[in-house]
Design a protein around this nucleic acid. Structure first.
Lengths: 216, 216
DNA sequence: GGCAAGCTGTCTGCTGGCTGACAGACAGCC
DNA sequence: GGCTGTCTGTCAGCCAGCAGACAGCTTGCC
């Protein structure tokens, strides 16, 4: 989410490699709000999302910045300074990082896929830095919507419908700003005819052209 | 630079593995200001810095944000949306990414090192995001100085001397702010007795305690 | 029905930091 | 000496966006 998805690791591997890699992984059910990992967490794990929705975020004092939402197929690691939390009931496959590294030694065919996943995560981070360092909130919002449009937009009555299932606060945390600012920007764009809101978390984009122009 | 260094890849490998990995790499001399890579550059390369100083930065319109400076031992890739530029005459060992990936398949012992390097780069990116999303410029500056202190500080007449070889503008670009703001913050810290400036790019930190407190 | 919880919209005041402009200090060079 | 280029310090003006407060709307529950 928020840009091209962290690539689906499993799709890129043949069945045998897949099975070998996932040896030692165990399935885990998460309830809504459950923390999978936090900075300085005891144990390093890698995990793959089977279902549900996982939020990866940074926190400092009482602010939070969402790095990404993971859905089915998403892969991440609980090391790093990020918090990892299920925002709804979810299922994940978890494995120990150290053990997975060891498995990799005897599974060279999986290496390029792994490196590509890491590379995609890195790209995502760089995009975020670019956003935070250079763009104002309106630019970030436009870029976010434009990116989601490419991934999730569906034609609907002459416009493009975007069902994000995110509320204003969620979007604000993805952009590193406040709910109030997102709210007023979205309404300004609505007034300008760029989009309209068709219920909570549902947007109809009427002028993708102008949206993209704003994301530069 | 700017936090723990992107780990020195070569140190972590035995001589044989090293030689195998660097097969096909070629040495290249860079003059000051030379661009090694830019977003949408034709060819993907990996490179290792032998000497000199390389700046990795993002650019947008007329602003630039420096992600890191690489010195001897540093490793990076020219893929990604970053620009890579020699800020002084430098020597690098360059290799083709695709070919290096292929080499890796038959060199499983190098995989953990590679993954660790990628992981360190990712950690650095996350630290930057944390800074940009949560901290004001003074906090970022304090954190930057504190980090450099740990890596480059040398006792000097009862204080800790920091020879950064960076001017105010360079620091501003590392922090995502302007030269003027950095200048006034440094002078405020000097007035408060936290540090003093002993020439361009040289700082004496008198109160590391209070510096750290400001970086939270 | 009433009540609470969650989501949204809007207003107001305040401020961190950007921008542009200018001046002083210093080094190297002709 | 004067000239140029590089680096630094400082000031005034301005504004994007934060923070707090409040109101309206829905939904679900007792």
């Amino acid at each position: 989410m928020h840009g091209p998805d962290a690539s689906n690791l499993l799709e890129r591997l043949d069945a045998l490699t897949q099975a070998a890699l996932l040896q030692g992984f165990h399935q885990r059910q998460l309830v809504e709000g459950e923390l999978l990992g936090s900075p300085n967490g005891e144990r390093d794990s890698v995990f793959i999302v089977r279902s549900g929705r996982i939020r990866v975020f940074l926190a400092f004092e009482d602010k939070e910045y969402t790095l990404t939402f993971l859905e089915a197929g998403g892969i991440y690691s609980t090391h790093s300074q990020a918090y990892v939390q299920a925002v709804r009931p979810s299922e994940v496959l978890m494995g120990d990082t150290v053990q997975t590294m060891a498995t990799l030694r005897s599974l060279p065919s999986a290496v390029p896929a792994i490196i590509r996943v890491l590379g995609a995560t890195l790209d995502n981070c760089m995009r975020i830095i670019e956003d935070l360092a250079f763009r104002d909130v309106e630019g970030r919002l436009a870029r976010f919507l434009d990116g989601m449009l490419a991934r999730k937009g569906r034609p609907h009555q002459g416009s493009l419908r975007l069902e994000l299932d995110l509320n204003t606060e969620d979007i604000a945390q993805l952009l590193g700003t406040t709910r109030q600012t997102v709210s007023s920007l979205l309404n300004r764009m609505a007034r300008e005819g760029i989009l309209s809101r068709a219920g909570n978390g549902v947007f109809d984009i009427h002028d993708a052209e102008r949206l993209r122009a704003r994301s530069q």
